[in-house]
Design a binder for these strands. Structure first.
Lengths: 330, 330
DNA sequence: TGTTATAATGGAAGCGTTTCCACGACATAA
DNA sequence: TTATGTCGTGGAAACGCTTCCATTATAACA
């Protein structure tokens, strides 16, 4: 059934060279031009594929990066992953994506070193850095994306500042009452301090400006369901010209829909800011906060690769500023 | 820096046994009770961790399964994955999840055999089976989840039947005009025939029953945005008692929201059926089609593992019936 | 007690690479 | 011509395991 595998020795014999030479061809060692050509030809002719395990066992590099991520549902996170992947590909690394879809999977990762011993670097995306405390032993370099830590390199966004920016923006409008639509995270591995931070920045700025902001002005929503119709209607009609800060664009979309059915115009009858700058928000004219997707992935990759290549390099923490995209809803 | 690794030989020496015995302890070979105890103790004491590469190279099994999936955003797919994972864990397999987030990643998978040579089985989830035609060479067993193929085992849902069930259900109501809210897939690796099939089953049944169903009655929506407010309003107000079949629960949610703001009651002024039976639909009272998440994952895992253990077994195709969950909206 | 069948064990060979060392070929400098 | 590098090359050793075979300990029985 299983025909004998073609090994490097077969190639060497067929090409009339030693195994060392074939290995050197494979690993860009120095080999004379025509010898290399001959070997390459033989490899192709025999359909030889190097054995990954043997290669690694013998001390070769895996050129693999482990990417730990939560169970994401948003396009935002997938896009970060994509840009990250794109970047490491340029350096001929491959990423193994490890989604934390269950407690069991988390435990398996922590207790089973095989995944970790196989890679040269680890990316932890959008997951509470507590994981680093746990019994999580890595001696490969680690980079956090969208989280902050001073134990390893990271790229993150200042969510508190994001909240402040939104508040300051809304303060320039003629607003009677300020709201925030908030939700706690759906996934246990995401300790979602992000939204909390946004709220804090928002609230503090409003209060500093002498505005009222009490708990009742924070509207709690289920993450996947969003705020209910009644909640939205109440906000929109309780006072004239309310200002609403939705923690995600999705929540803002619901507000827009309800407003439209009761004949209220955004930017006039009420003011609305989202978060994420999802692709559809442009068409919808939603004012929102942009998170630098491309840069997140790209910079994360760079930080990791630089430390893989030179582990002596110091860790770096890079903060990206949140960016307000002003559109029609404010 | 890198202290010498603890190997099986160290354990053998420390425990006063041969390497073969240690290996047997590790691989549940037959070893006398107290010898095993002694070895286990030594392993723990030394903190020995078997080297995955050496083990595999020497002919051991990897006990790993490759799970190829699209970039999913729905809870539905994550839950399938979870139940699958849970099931294979019982048999001490681990799954490597490989999300197809870009064309590049697809190509890397197809052209690079290292991922595939590392596993004992492959699951392809929610991805057009065309991938099997391509230059995709696996000699491990393959199981498709949520897709049908007669080249390998699969578990799938009969979407056409789903459409028919919805139509038949709505036909029992006193409906003046039938609609469907449809969307094409967002991901290029998902050739979403599912929704198309649902529409076909729906339409054919309606037409067979002598109802009118023309293209105009299919409402096209952006996948992540859903149908627009105007589209929904038009459906709801154009005639009395319309019947609406939303291809996903998310679309149905939008309909409910719009309806609520214009004071229309589901199950009375209009009739609405979703698809997926997402967790929130129960609370919302939405009539919908249940897809057997647990069973999908579990059965997929079983089909795969049975073929891993005995490759001679014939492939099996298992169809799950869609199930109507009747609630208040019809 | 001795004989035979069976279970447990030690250790060499082999898995397919990389790496290192030694050596020959060839060029350059004295 | 001889001494001194430099480059390219072949092949043994090592990586850490599993597996198989030969050997020894143990059990079963007469």
């Amino acid at each position: 059934m299983k025909s004998k595998n073609i090994t490097i020795r077969d190639v060497a014999r067929e090409a009339g060279v030693g195994v060392g030479t074939v290995s050197r061809v494979l690993n860009s060692g120095s080999v004379k031009q025509d010898t290399r050509q001959k070997v390459l030809e033989t490899i192709k002719r025999l359909g030889y594929k190097p054995n990954f395990f043997a290669r690694t066992l013998a001390g070769g590099k895996t050129d693999r990066i482990l990417t730990i991520m939560p169970e994401v549902k948003s396009e935002f996170h997938w896009r970060i992953l994509e840009s990250f992947d794109h970047e490491i590909d340029k350096e001929n690394f491959q990423s193994i994506i490890y989604p934390l879809i269950s407690r069991k999977r988390y435990d398996a990762l922590i207790s089973n070193p095989s995944f970790i011993q196989e890679v040269e670097g680890v990316i932890i995306m959008t997951i509470t850095p507590d994981i680093l405390d746990d019994r999580f032993e890595v001696n490969a370099p680690v980079v956090l994306i969208e989280e902050k830590s001073n134990k390893c390199s990271c790229v993150y966004l200042n969510n508190r500042k994001g909240g402040r920016i939104v508040a300051n923006h809304l303060l320039e409008r003629n607003i009677t009452k300020y709201y925030a639509i908030y939700s706690s995270a759906a996934n246990p591995f995401i300790k979602n301090e992000h939204m909390k931070d946004r709220i804090i920045g928002y609230r503090d700025t409003l209060i500093d400006a002498g505005k009222l902001f009490e708990d009742e002005q924070i509207i709690y929503a289920d993450y996947s369901l969003g705020p209910s119709n009644e909640q939205i209607k109440k906000m929109l009609t309780e006072t004239n010209r309310p200002g609403i800060f939705a923690m995600t664009d999705n929540f803002a979309l619901l507000v827009l829909q309800v407003a439209s059915t009761i004949g209220l115009s955004p930017g006039k009858d009420f003011f609305l800011v989202g978060y994420d700058n999802q692709s559809w928000t442009e068409k919808a004219g939603l004012t929102t906060i942009e998170q630098p997707i491309e840069e997140f992935g790209k910079t994360g990759a760079k930080l990791l690769i630089e430390r893989i290549k030179n582990p002596a390099l110091p860790i770096r923490q890079i903060e990206f500023p949140p960016l307000l995209i002003k559109r029609n809803t404010t």
